[in-house]
Design a binder for these strands. Structure first.
Lengths: 362, 362
DNA sequence: TTGAAAGCGGTACCAG
DNA sequence: CTGGTACCGCTTTCAA
């Protein structure tokens, strides 16, 4: 009855504007604006009076209007395409928090591969986002990236595009792949294999090249270099079966943890191999499942927090200085040794979260 | 053609505005606006001329300005808090796509539990989002929800708050829990246990109550009802150990798949029980890992696509009719039977994705 | 159908 | 420090 009317009324109710608030207080509208602008010239008394009244009357400055006149949206567009890998949700969550800390809201753009990508990104331009953060490892061509980022702060996360002058932040894939090769070597393994993810992505290429190179340097034999084709459990599983069929590998590096999980299950449950006695397994990323007792997977931990901090930092820098030259930032990660390479015994000695100085320094 | 070049050059830094485009074409600015507004009164010829010029000169209407005058942001705020459970990234991705289909962008609000929640949501109001979709199963109190959603289209996804007149959409947890109890019963199991997730969430309460009730109805014995405390692998693992210690359970229902995975590993690897011979295991959600051969987990599949469609639909309805009464929508899911309850043999007969009519209809 | 003009709710510059 | 006032770029009457 009255309730329904009330609801309608409250829906229709227009929020208080700065102008009205000013009129109510007998001050100018400019004063209200200043009260909400840190560092603007206004006496503390006036500001307090206005803020107090604003709180009481439930006044909030309209961000849209502010955007229009400031030509600043305080919005960061995050372009994402593959949430399947659990590494990304975590990254995005932290990134979103990091951005909120510097007063940037995250507008998510989920793009689907295949169909016209640029069309899916027109909103990026229409909403006038201040910054663009591209997390999609794939999908976007160099041209699309340039188009989406031109004229605004932009960072590519976990991906680089060589010929493009767009700043990037990622884990040091070369360091990681080398650390794993070194670790295998230190364990006395000599017949190693590599399982690739999405072949043409920078993450995969960097890990693969660094690993293959280091393996050669150390005099180990690269038995297989399998094209997983995608970063999925299934691809890892199939690769695991291939490796088992080859019967000659004693250590495998999977391009990421999900692949490694699939490979692990195939190798242990189908091929009946013992991990790590018959074959050692390592992944990349350090997602949650690597810590599950069933897997206890040796992996290279991406420095997620550092990646987020660096990204936010670079965005802020670009925002305050549009001429900032682009840079490529590879952040150092950490080898995490677990049962899948050293078995249960040594782990007690080595410690779960610290890489052994010994194996790490090879 | 020199004119066009000039124009292109001049808009290198400042994007073209409707006013300028109008001047260039010798038409009014209103005409430009109409050209971009479907269904507005303008001759097809004029519209074509304007759209053609706009495309050539790379003109895009400024969404911010449009929001300000229309008092419509075309933005949906998605409030999220726990991306750990892989069910949510999938849901959010699909939801975001569904919203894009009706021209709503998704502004993500990641809220952290504990600290002042409302403070984290002021942006929701400042950005004038048209719709609010709350996916956080926890964290938000009824009061916060009311505050965040008042005066705008809103839907709670996968959560209900009884006394609140906010529309909700979720999987039919009661149906799911009963289906699993029935399935256990059909398998001839009589000593069942339940492992709870976050105790006070509606998802957990509904599943738990329905399961416990149905178990009693069927004359089975509820051996344990374990408080997992959270929806995590570790909690499931611990619960699995507890159940094994009790030595009396022949079928367990875990409140979600992640718990079930942890429980599975604890029961098989630590307690050395055979699944499903010694103990049958079922989860809830049907996330990707349930299909991993290692787990092959029987579960109740949430109708994600239907949830997304219904949510988008309800938002659109509310947007066009502010008086729409709130409703609680429980969508029907599907029991997915895999090895963890029936073992490898029967599966060939039953088929992987279709529940057996026999076991399902009990 | 079309153009002119008045907002939408702030910001920022200018004079006092 | 404060108030007045031109915008920001688009939508939407209101006349013509």
């Amino acid at each position: 009855m009255t309730k329904a009317e009330d609801d309608v009324a409250s829906l229709r109710h227009k929020p208080l504007t700065a102008r009205e608030l000013a009129r109510l207080l007998g001050v100018s509208q400019s004063a209200v604006s200043r009260a909400f602008t840190p560092g603007s010239s206004i006496t503390p008394e006036l500001r307090q009076r206005i803020l107090k009244a604003a709180a009481e009357l439930n006044y909030h400055p309209n961000a849209i209007a502010s955007m229009l006149s400031k030509r600043r949206s305080n919005i960061a567009g995050i372009v994402v395409s593959e949430m399947q890998n659990p590494f990304y949700p975590t990254l995005i969550e932290k990134l979103s928090r990091g951005l909120q800390r510097v007063r940037l809201q995250s507008l998510m753009f989920n793009i689907t591969r295949g169909s016209n990508v640029e069309e899916q990104l027109v909103a990026l331009r229409q909403y006038n986002v201040d910054a663009v953060i591209i997390i999609s490892a794939t999908v976007l061509s160099g041209a699309s990236v340039r188009w989406a980022t031109e004229g605004r702060a932009a960072v590519l996360v976990n991906r680089t595009i060589p010929d493009l002058s767009v700043t990037s932040v990622s884990c040091d894939n070369v360091e990681g792949a080398r650390a794993i090769a070194d670790h295998f070597h230190a364990l006395g393994r000599h017949r190693v294999s590599y399982v690739a993810g999405l072949a043409h992505t920078s993450t995969n290429l960097e890990r693969q090249n660094a690993f293959v190179t280091r393996v050669a340097e150390l005099g180990m034999r690269l038995v297989h270099c399998i094209a997983g084709g995608e970063y999925s459990y299934d691809a890892g599983y199939r690769a695991g079966l291939d490796i088992a069929r080859g019967k000659d590998t004693d250590a495998v590096f999977f391009a990421n943890d999900i692949l490694a999980a699939g490979g692990f299950d195939a190798l242990t449950e189908i091929a009946k191999l013992r991990v790590p006695e018959d074959i050692a397994i390592a992944g990349f990323d350090d997602v949650a499942l690597t810590r599950w007792p069933h897997y206890s997977l040796t992996t290279f931990r991406q420095p997620v927090d550092a990646i987020v901090d660096k990204t936010v930092d670079l965005i802020m820098q670009q925002l305050s200085d549009a001429t900032l030259p682009s840079s490529h930032n590879a952040l150092s990660g950490e080898l995490i040794i677990r049962h899948s390479t050293v078995g249960k015994q040594p782990l007690e000695i080595i410690g779960e979260n610290k890489p052994s100085p010994l194996t790490n320094s090879l």
